[in-house]
Design a protein around this nucleic acid. Sequence first.
DNA 1: TAATTCTTGACTAATTCAATAGAGTTAGTC
DNA 2: GACTAACTCTATTGAATTAGTCAAGAATTA
Lengths: 149, 149
Amino acid sequence: MRISAKGDYATRAMQELAMHYNRGPLPIEAIAGRQQIPVRYLEQLLLILKRAGLLESKRGVKGGYYLAKPPNQITVGQIIRLMDGPPAPIFCVDPASHDKCPVEAICGFQSVWDEVHQAVAGIIDKTTLEDVCHRAMLKLEPGAATYRI
Amino acid sequence: MRISAKGDYATRAMQELAMHYNRGPLPIEAIAGRQQIPVRYLEQLLLILKRAGLLESKRGVKGGYYLAKPPNQITVGQIIRLMDGPPAPIFCVDPASHDKCPVEAICGFQSVWDEVHQAVAGIIDKTTLEDVCHRAMLKLEPGAATYRI
DNA sequence: TAATTCTTGACTAATTCAATAGAGTTAGTC
DNA sequence: GACTAACTCTATTGAATTAGTCAAGAATTA
């Protein structure tokens, strides 16, 4: 029932970029350093996020990555689905899976796992990077209600 | 975000035993056959369930496994926790983990993952084997409100 | 005692995951 | 226009986990 390191790294990198939103590109090294992620591994993840349209990048000196959209338009769900696939706890409730369950006719768990799937999806799809930045700022400055761009 | 084959097999085996509750021991082979689980693998899982006090067994002719408690006193959560551990999506919200998150102070995701954890736990801990049997029976005989022991 | 069934621990095979490596390409700057 | 910082892409490795197998043994019943 775990998200992968891939999903963990990607979400944290995106938080970092969200907190830097509108301040120009952020180099991979900077993200990796602050979030304690292996640089070479992070490269791959940022590429995936870029191809999916969540990030844009700029090469050369002063280059780096930046969000393609405002933080309130990117959800945790988008990132997790990209990295780990749908949050279905088992293939039989995964809309992306084409495998047929051999015991579907007698199994009482399908609806249970479907409830779990919907519950998780509900949370990660409603939570945006803006929300996440909020929560991070509240940790740093308890009492602050908003974060500054 | 998946449960393991171990968790899947174990829960289904328990449903099988629940549907057979009060009808005497059910041999491993019978469970494995009906639920399409590799016999040799299932052996191990049933032993774990037995050691945890969820099952009892009887050897020899007419032997097999049977529930140690009524189906309404065994939850899906108990089985899953036994096989896969707590339903925490990441170690930093797993009460059983002693690892310290290196970026805890700046991470906005801890509360998100905790919400997920609680949501999943809420579902699997409230769902009993009796509920699961119900759902299975509804599949077999649409319209039936209860299942027969 | 013979057939049946659970019990135990060791073992192997396969898969997945995380991470690394290296050779390139592009863009900005002096 | 050369230098350098930074992105791009593919391949490979190594470790860890997971799934599944095997063989020998112990208990129970007929």
